[in-house]
């Protein structure tokens, strides 16, 4: 995928962060994915993905307020960076190109 390397799960997480906009932090992202995609997400897997995305520069984060329900710990809010947006667009574009390249006959299953 050229310079925008991104995995399937990473893509999902990145999109979820974008959907949540200003309310994207660990648990909300997890719930968003679980609700929308109907799949289980473990804290560990998501956390790792978030880390990796941040390392790659697709995400940035800042701490919010501490709350009692979090045992006095602060939330870390994530935001998609412009570079992250470019990566998502690139992925979408690549997929589109690929879709377009599929000959119509390939998905014509009538005879099988």
């Amino acid at each position: 995928m050229g310079k925008y390397s991104i995995g399937e799960f990473e893509e999902v997480v990145l999109l979820a962060v974008a959907i949540l906009f200003e309310n994207a932090y660990g648990i909300s992202i997890k719930k968003e994915i679980e609700n929308r995609l109907d799949r289980k997400v473990s804290v560990g897997a998501m956390r790792t993905a978030l880390n990796r995305l941040e390392d790659k520069g697709y995400l940035e984060s800042e701490f919010g307020e501490a709350t009692a329900i979090r045992g006095g710990k602060r939330k870390r809010f994530f935001k998609v960076t412009p570079y992250g947006k470019m990566a998502l667009e690139k992925v979408m574009e690549t997929r589109k190109q690929l879709w377009e390249a599929i000959p119509a006959i390939a998905f014509d299953f009538k005879f099988v």
């Binding site: 932090y25 660990g26 648990i27 956390r47 979090r70 710990k73």
Partner: peptide, 16 residues
């Protein structure tokens, strides 16, 4: 670098 909000996330989940 991660411990604070990871622990926070887990606590929130736990409480829920």
């Amino acid at each position: 670098n991660l411990i604070e909000d990871v622990e926070g996330d887990l606590s929130e989940l736990f409480n829920a």
